[in-house]
């Protein structure tokens, strides 16, 4: 018969179970998600470099149609929408799809971490990356001569409506991303998320206006969340008033995709 081997010093295996405080779990989960996101090269490319490159390219190469004001006024809202789209939709969907296929979500499901805290951690990480993106894009925009509202006071007054649209857009795209990642295989999610990114980029009024599209296509595109977010931000940041129709489009997409994702999401 085996005799119990003495435990290694510092490794007391005797039971002492207790979950960490909720706040500590949330901080740990958020920081892990943030670190992993910023470590993925393709995710940094997608979330930081592509929006930045589009902003620089289209603001210096004159390919935009005449008569719609300075190109930078058109571009900054567009790339802000693209930043939200890439982080909360494409990046989140791909990462979640692979986490699911590697059993990370199942593993955490067997830990004291409540699902709500897991989702909150993911959300905070997405918002954290978006803060980085927005700061970078707005700073570059200013450097390129962007001056929303024509004065600092006018610019500041646009902040609340801008934040509302950014948060609503994040909720909407995150729900769509999780809907995909929770139902499809990781490889299928990867392909579909990139495909939809391209569709949203072209039909989203991001680097060229919807008016450039054939009118039938434009009418469909107006109902897609990418255009609602990009044009909505543009309305706010060019002083055209609060775009309530676009807010409704985003909200409807967010609720529908959210409900569907909650019903269909498979953790394994």
């Amino acid at each position: 018969m085996t005799t119990p081997t003495p435990a290694v010093p510092g490794l007391d295996l005797s039971p002492s179970p207790a979950a960490a405080p909720m706040s500590r779990m949330l901080v740990a989960q958020t920081l892990l998600e943030l670190r992993l996101t910023l470590r993925r090269g393709e995710s940094v490319l997608l979330t930081l470099l592509i929006p930045l490159a589009l902003l620089l390219f289209f603001s210096t190469v004159d390919v935009l149609p005449e008569g719609s004001g300075p190109p930078i006024d058109f571009l900054v809202p567009g790339v802000l929408a693209l930043a939200v789209l890439s982080t909360s939709f494409t990046g989140l969907a791909i990462a979640t799809g692979f986490e699911r296929s590697y059993g990370a979500l199942k593993r955490l499901g067997a830990s004291p971490l409540p699902r709500g805290v897991l989702l909150a951690g993911k959300t905070l990480a997405v918002l954290g990356v978006e803060v980085l993106q927005v700061a970078l894009l707005v700073a570059v925009g200013f450097a390129l001569g962007w001056n929303p509202g024509g004065s600092t006071a006018a610019g500041v007054s646009m902040v609340p409506a801008t934040l509302l649209l950014l948060v609503l857009g994040t909720a909407c795209f995150a729900a769509l991303g999780l809907l995909m990642a929770g139902a499809l295989r990781a490889e299928a999610t990867l392909a579909a998320a990139n495909g939809m990114y391209l569709v949203f980029l072209m039909l989203g009024g991001i680097v060229f206006p919807l008016s450039q599209l054939p009118s039938a296509v434009a009418r469909v595109a107006e109902l897609l969340p990418a255009a609602a977010l990009a044009e909505g931000l543009r309305d706010v940041l060019t002083g055209a008033g609060m775009p309530w129709a676009k807010v409704v489009v985003l909200a409807v997409w967010a609720v529908l995709a959210g409900l569907l994702a909650a019903r269909t999401f498979r953790w394994e």
Partner: peptide, 27 residues
Amino acid sequence: LQTGGFYPGARAGEMVHHLAALARHPL
């Protein structure tokens, strides 16, 4: 778990530290 159970991009040490952070009196 019988297979997997980790973030593909996380380092092995990060996973163990993370699960430890979810407990009040971990090893």
